[in-house]
């Protein structure tokens, strides 16, 4: 009986992030909450950093450079950005800076970092193949209020530095 809406993107590229940003000054990655991507400009262009940090009740998980928890979305099936549109309003993807790179902070494995194309434009940083997202409701660092939430068509989990989702025991 339970309906699980699949949120595959059908957004035309023309109405992608840049256009939305122009419309609202609040595109997913620049969204509220301070959970926006962490970028710094290095010699070779902007750098997006992924860190690991201990969050109370969960242990050490991946976070942005500002300490906001990073999540994986089960329907992404390990390498496919499927949270777009309204979903990305709630779960802003961790967008790669244009022409930049993603680097690992202490405790994070550089070899597991990568990126996948966002159907609406740009690229989303990945870890162990999972596209990374923040949660709008984490309005402060060191929170993970979206952990183990069933929303927007699937389950959301934080990621351990090993690259495995933190799935609670049944």
């Amino acid at each position: 009986m339970r309906k699980r809406a699949r949120l595959r993107s059908a957004l035309p590229p023309a109405l992608g992030c840049a256009a939305v940003l122009a419309l609202t000054a609040g595109c997913a990655t620049a969204s509220a909450s301070g959970a926006a991507q962490a970028t710094a400009h290095a010699k070779n262009g902007p750098v997006l950093k992924v860190d690991a940090h201990s969050i109370p009740g969960l242990g050490t998980v991946l976070v942005t450079a500002q300490g906001y928890a990073l999540y994986m979305f089960q329907p992404d099936d390990d390498r496919s950005v499927s949270c777009t549109g309204a979903c990305a309003g709630t779960w802003p993807p961790l967008m790669m800076p244009s022409g930049g790179v993603v680097t690992a902070g202490p405790g994070v494995q550089q070899t597991l970092l990568g990126s996948d194309p966002d159907p609406t434009g740009g690229r989303v940083a990945t870890y162990n193949g999972w596209p990374l997202y923040t949660y709008t409701a984490d309005i402060q660092p060191d929170q993970a209020t979206g952990q183990n939430l069933d929303l927007n068509g699937g389950e959301w989990y934080v990621l351990k530095p090993s690259g495995k989702p933190l799935v609670p025991a049944p």
Partner: peptide
Amino acid sequence: VQDAALIIHDYIEGFHEGLEEGFVFPRLRQ
């Protein structure tokens, strides 16, 4: 209960709130 909660889950939480969080709230924060 299930039917009512599913409307909230699928439509209000899974769509409506995403529009607010992605398009309305950031503008007000700014």
